[in-house]
Simulated assay, not measured.
Amino acid sequence: MTMQELKVASDRIGVIIGKGGATRKAIEEKAEVAITIDSNEGLVTIEGEDALGVLRATEVIRALGRGFSPERAFRLFEDEDILLDIIDLSNVADTPQKMNRIRGRIIGRDGKARGQIENMTQTYISIYGKTVGIIGLPEPVQTARKGIEMLVEGSDHANVFAFLDRRKKEAKEDLISYYY
């Protein structure tokens, strides 16, 4: 029996449970695990015979806890190569004002910057609290992370998008040379 415990923000417990327990039940079925939720403490316990199932369920719950919708978090079940990466912004923003500015740079006006990064890297991005979560395949996640880090460090959006565009073209060329 494998067991994992993780702490989740109380405002995300409802998302993990889902309407009538639907999200929790779906996680339990897909990963073949049992989930216990202590909503007072924000503690989620995942138990199962299959260590990989427990690990996958843990990642999905971490994603839900970091602001992803169940639809996006469940991408982690679809392909074993898909991963969740979490960037902690608390070390770069020591005041609430700085944190808001950094989050605003990543999100962009009306969510345009975040949307563009998602489109250019084929990833999902969630900005929640003091973290940025990224779901996708390893290389695109790495590229999205680098783009986000550039924004955090103060790079112009135009430079970040030019970098992402170069990476996208390089990835396409790598794919073509791999097959030919």
Rank of each mutant, 00 (worst) to 15 (best):
D85V: 14
F74I: 03
L64V: 08
A34Q: 15
P70F: 07
P70Y: 03
D79L: 08
D38E: 06
E49A: 12
E78A: 09
E47W: 05
N40P: 03
I27F: 07
V54A: 12
F77E: 04
A73C: 06
R56Q: 14
E32T: 10
A63N: 06
F68S: 02
E59V: 02
V44F: 03
A73P: 08
D85S: 14
F77V: 00
R75Y: 06
V33M: 07
G53E: 07
I82L: 12
F74K: 05
D38C: 08
E59G: 08
A26K: 11
R72D: 13
V60G: 13
L76R: 07
L55T: 14
D88P: 00
D88V: 01
I46Y: 03
E32R: 13
R62Y: 08
I82S: 10
N40L: 14
F74H: 03
I82E: 11
I35Y: 09
R56M: 12
E49W: 13
G67Q: 01
I35A: 11
D50P: 02
A26E: 10
L84N: 00
I46H: 01
D88E: 04
A57K: 01
G67M: 01
L64E: 04
A63Q: 07
A31W: 11
N40G: 12
R62H: 11
A63Y: 07
E78Q: 10
R72S: 13
P70Q: 08
R72K: 15
G67S: 01
V44L: 05
D38Y: 04
E29A: 05
I82Q: 06
G48H: 01
I87T: 00
D50K: 08
D50E: 02
R66I: 06
A26S: 12
G53D: 05
G67K: 01
I27Q: 09
T45S: 12
P70G: 08
A57F: 04
A73Y: 04
E59W: 03
L55S: 15
K30A: 04
I37P: 08
L52W: 15
F68E: 10
I86E: 10
E29T: 05
G53C: 09
F68A: 06
L64W: 02
I87D: 00
D50M: 02
I61Y: 08
F68L: 09
R56V: 15
L52A: 12
E71H: 11
I61R: 06
I37Q: 06
I35G: 06
D50A: 04
D38S: 06
R72G: 10
E47F: 11
E49P: 13
G67R: 02
L64P: 06
D88T: 03
L83D: 15
R66D: 13
V54C: 06
E28C: 09
A34C: 13
I87C: 01
G65L: 00
G53I: 05
L84R: 04
I46N: 03
I61K: 11
F77G: 04
A51P: 14
T45A: 13
L43S: 11
R62S: 05
A51L: 12
E78L: 07
L84S: 00
D85Q: 15
I27R: 07
V44P: 08
G53T: 03
D79H: 03
D81Q: 14
I37N: 05
D88C: 05
K30I: 02
A34L: 15
